[in-house]
């Protein structure tokens, strides 16, 4: 029999697995029906044929789904290394494509996406050790990289973020935000992303990670608002951005023995 603590840890680990499933579904969809940065690198940088590049995309899409399915059946941790490798390959290829590392933060912004399967791999490789302090730190580290990456992009006035803000204000408040105000707001958001994620890395606070969960969720869902149905997979792709901070909140509460969700406010104050 599992203790209640072990049971809830299992539930939350399954929650992370579910987030990974959403992410893999999105990766697979994009690779199968659209084209990826890996495709472009194969075609342009490696100078192989377009058909081969497209075939590689379709193949990797199937391998991603298959490896995750096999993991669910066998619980062999090594299958999780496939999404880790894929999650690393995507930002590296994006960087190679633009040939300019100064303007490309894909490796930072994508950290949660390869970090999520990596921490799950480490957990399942040595399950009896549970979610030890090293893995908890690693989760916070990947969250930090992702938020810092997005924070830098926000400070650099990423045009897509400006458009999201302007469109979001128009939809939610019926107010046309000027580009200058959107840029100011983006600077604040970028600074907050960086400060909060670093402070969370140093000292995990429930309030900080609750905020990051909410913000990670909002920024993922805003894709749906902006692109409508085309935004479903970009939204799912960002599941790690809210799932990992939510998991950290659970970990902190569990450490403080706060088992009832409604007592969360107590933990926030503490």
């Amino acid at each position: 029999m599992l203790s209640s603590e072990e049971q809830s840890t299992k539930k939350w680990t399954n929650f992370l697995l579910f987030a990974l499933f959403l992410q893999i579904a999105a990766w697979s969809y994009e690779a199968y029906f659209n084209s990826t940065a890996i495709n472009s690198v194969i075609f342009l940088n490696l100078n192989l044929s377009d058909q081969f590049a497209s075939l590689f995309d379709k193949f990797s899409s199937l391998v991603l789904l298959l490896s995750f399915g096999l993991f669910l059946i066998t619980r062999v941790a090594s299958f999780l290394l496939v999404p880790v490798a894929y999650g690393l390959a995507l930002p590296i290829c994006t960087m190679l494509l633009h040939s300019s590392f100064a303007y490309e933060f894909a490796l930072l912004t994508g950290a949660a996406r390869f970090g999520l399967p990596l921490v799950l791999y480490l957990f399942y490789k040595n399950q009896e050790k549970g979610w030890g302090i090293d893995k908890r730190f690693l989760i916070r580290f990947f969250i930090c990289l992702t938020f810092v990456g997005h924070g830098i992009e926000a400070l650099m006035e990423h045009p897509k973020f400006i458009d999201f803000l302007i469109e979001g204000f128009a939809l939610l408040f019926g107010y046309e935000l000027s580009e200058a105000y959107a840029v100011h707001l983006l600077t604040l958001i970028g600074a907050a992303d960086i400060v909060l994620s670093i402070s969370g890395l140093i000292k995990p606070r429930v309030s900080v990670y609750l905020f990051m969960t909410a913000w990670g969720f909002i920024t993922a869902v805003c894709r749906l608002m902006y692109f409508q149905w085309d935004g479903i997979f970009p939204m799912l792709l960002r599941s790690a951005h809210w799932a990992l901070p939510a998991f950290v909140v659970y970990m902190i509460l569990q450490q403080r023995k706060v088992s009832e969700p409604w007592k969360i406010w107590k933990a926030v104050k503490g």
């Binding site: 045009p159 400006i162 458009d163 302007i166 469109e167 000027s178 580009e179 959107a182």
Partner: peptide, 8 residues
């Protein structure tokens, strides 16, 4: 297309 499409 490298800057905001919706602002100025």
């Amino acid at each position: 297309t490298n800057i905001s499409h919706s602002g100025a």
